[in-house]
Design a protein around this nucleic acid. Structure first.
Lengths: 198, 198
DNA sequence: CGGACTAACTAAGCATTGCTCAGTTAACCT
DNA sequence: AGGTTAACTGAGCAATGCTTAGTTAGTCCG
């Protein structure tokens, strides 16, 4: 593990990293730490210590704790979007099912962490809101593509609501799995509120 | 307004309130302030100043900022639950429609504030989570009652998801009203994922 | 090789904020 | 009037977000 706890380099074991790598290291630490606790319970000092650097340096890369948090949540969102997409090599002829299945099973794997990032702290904040909105819109886009539906404002609103439903089903499953993943996928597709081809 | 800004009672204009009244005053201030900004942007000092008391006193009633926040969100939840219920005098024979309509129009009236409280900060926190869970479960309960549906675990999961959908539709409406409130109510009822009597 | 330049990095320190506690004083009871 | 209770203050502590003057690792050029 490259994220062991260590004191800031006391003139001896100091390591100098290229900015991009350091940034990635810090975001990785955030991804790990924020999975199990809200942002207000994670201090800059703790992150710096985990990274083995001083507080000051962290502020060089992320001028504000908020900026750091946004970077971490953004990374989490990118992970989700990378996982929850239709496999381009898939030839099942059911692209919608593939997307939904990928989404539900991502939440299934990442369970509680998912909520930490996307229903966690700083929620009323503009930048975090932006990330969530982008996430929703991308999923709506994919659904429109997968079903060959016209991209009207009404359809988009309906699909955002539908994804909220799918998300709820998936999250509930991680707490008390009354349905299987396949059940959830089936019911979700049945409940699609817009006309779609088979 | 009883919540004007004033200095702590400097031995002269100090007012002594019974605990319940003071608590209510402080929660009322929170309800007002947290409607427009997240919790981390509201300091205890600011609340104390608005109330015209010292910091110390606030901690007498709410031993922790978190406790204060929980009290405020709890009050907001109670408001919502009081508003989003079927009128007992209603004789329309459509109790479900009445509940949904009340819920949607509550969000419509309180727009952005709704999100501040129920998708706002401290989200990963156990106590806040508890409030949200209670809110959801109560709405599910009311739906079961209104539709005369059996209270199975499966039905409860489905209804929680359905409410998430309704919530999404209602919130989207406050941003860009592509549907009318009645549209939302109609579509919501159509999309009910469980068998129900008319 | 070595001197100079860049920028990654540290550490001391400031202001704010959550929280504590010893003491003050308003209000009520007899 | 005196005494008791508890609402209330204010000084102060520790932690935390953030700033900045200065240090040092790494590289480039002669």
């Amino acid at each position: 593990m490259s994220t062991e706890t260590s004191l800031p380099g006391t003139a001896a074991n100091r390591r100098r990293l290229p900015p991009e790598e350091r940034k990635r290291q810090l975001v990785a630490i955030g991804l790990q730490e924020l999975a199990t606790r809200p942002i207000h319970a994670l201090s800059i000092d703790q992150v710096a210590e985990k990274a083995g650097i001083s507080r000051g340096l962290l502020f060089r890369y992320f001028p504000t704790k908020q900026d750091y948090y946004v970077a971490v949540v953004g990374a989490a969102a990118r992970r989700l979007l990378r996982a929850a997409k239709a496999d381009p090599d898939d030839a099942s002829g059911e692209p919608l099912r593939v997307v939904v299945r990928a989404f539900v099973s991502f939440i299934d794997r990442h369970g509680a962490n998912y909520q930490s990032f996307f229903h966690g702290g700083f929620g009323a904040d503009a930048q975090i809101h932006e990330i969530r909105k982008n996430l929703q819109n991308t999923m709506v886009e994919r659904t429109l593509d997968a079903t060959g539906t016209e991209s009207s404002p009404a359809n988009r609103v309906l699909l955002r609501a539908w994804w909220a439903m799918v998300e709820s089903l998936a999250i509930d499953r991680t707490v008390d799995p009354v349905f299987t993943v396949d059940d959830v996928v089936d019911r979700a597709i049945e409940a699609l509120p817009i006309p779609h081809r088979r």
